[in-house]
Amino acid sequence: MVKKFIKSMSLALALVLAFSLAGCGKNNVVSDEDSLKTPEQQIEENKKITDEQVDLVQFDTVPAGAEVAFIETSMGDITVALYPEHAPKAVENFIALAKSGYYTGLKFHRVVNNYMLQSGDPTGTGTGGESSFKDESGNKVGFEQEYSLNLWNFKGAVGMAPSGDGTNGSQFYIIQNSVVEEETLSKMQEAAFPQKVIDKYKEVGGAPWLDGKNTVFGYIIEGMDVIDEIAAVEVDANRAPVEDVIITNITIEKY
């Protein structure tokens, strides 16, 4: 079932991702003009992106003193590098929620082996959760996507899980897929993904069909074995673990 889902998504990559990624630069800005372009026009824009414009920061050494998220779970501990310079709102939101204790006691409500884990919903249903941001009236509000040529959905990526654009709240996912199929890699070539990115996906795996759709704001630097163990647990028909896997605490620490 999961393989069929991934395959069907990969068939749409050339159109969906080209449409979403065009216009994304180091400043994470997608203009209204870009959003009105046809998929064919977007692919032409993607062709202008060079490997020199892409810095795969997820594979750089984390600088000493940088803030990281230390996630304690009922199955082990995970350390996440954060990228405020590339996804400032998402990182600010995650840190604020973590420091407030929002995530403590929440479960991984969705686990799909060879794809991803998802958490951050107090209802445990995948339909709840709020951001740390408020409007002028003090009401909680979602926030927009942040795209960067420097952050991708490689295995180990941590990203926001919204219900639509502008609806980022508290839910987040962790990519666990270790193999990107040749068919998907071929579609990425057609969509004019940077070759550096395609090569890295082939090397480490990931979920490229999420690129240009969801905000990546972190990357697992320790505890990927824990992620793989969680991904392998027994799940029910709704892809929820039969035995709850819980986030017992998240602290923000200096690396």
Score class of each variant (00 low, 15 high):
71 I>N: 02
68 V>Y: 00
13 L>K: 04
141 V>Q: 11
60 D>P: 00
83 Y>E: 04
109 H>G: 03
224 M>N: 11
101 G>V: 01
159 G>R: 06
73 T>H: 02
130 E>G: 03
160 M>P: 00
183 E>V: 09
200 K>L: 08
64 A>T: 14
246 I>Y: 12
216 V>M: 12
129 G>N: 03
156 G>W: 02
100 S>W: 01
64 A>N: 13
190 E>C: 00
150 N>A: 10
40 E>W: 14
247 I>S: 02
161 A>T: 05
223 G>H: 04
103 Y>D: 08
239 R>W: 09
204 V>L: 05
96 A>I: 03
112 V>Q: 12
5 F>D: 12
128 G>Q: 02
87 A>C: 06
69 A>K: 09
94 F>K: 02
93 N>M: 06
166 G>H: 09
103 Y>K: 03
9 M>I: 03
239 R>Q: 14
207 A>Q: 08
113 N>P: 00
111 V>G: 00
218 G>K: 08
152 W>F: 13
146 E>C: 09
86 H>Q: 14
210 L>N: 07
198 I>K: 08
51 D>T: 06
47 K>I: 08
245 V>Q: 08
148 S>Q: 07
124 G>K: 02
163 S>L: 01
11 L>K: 14
219 Y>N: 12
38 T>R: 04
246 I>A: 07
183 E>N: 13
49 I>S: 11
2 V>H: 02
218 G>Q: 08
188 M>Y: 09
88 P>Y: 11
29 V>P: 00
111 V>W: 04
65 G>C: 10
216 V>A: 13
208 P>R: 08
171 Q>T: 00
72 E>W: 00
175 I>W: 02
242 V>K: 15
68 V>H: 00
135 D>M: 09
50 T>M: 11
176 Q>Y: 07
225 D>S: 12
196 K>M: 06
160 M>R: 02
75 M>C: 06
174 I>W: 07
192 A>K: 13
198 I>C: 09
242 V>R: 08
172 F>I: 01
173 Y>I: 06
44 E>Q: 14
185 L>A: 09
250 I>H: 03
73 T>A: 01
31 S>D: 10
15 L>I: 13
64 A>H: 11
173 Y>C: 01
56 L>V: 07
4 K>N: 14
89 K>L: 14
106 L>T: 04
99 K>T: 05
56 L>W: 09
7 K>A: 15
187 K>R: 14
175 I>D: 13
94 F>L: 01
30 V>N: 05
63 P>V: 08
51 D>S: 11
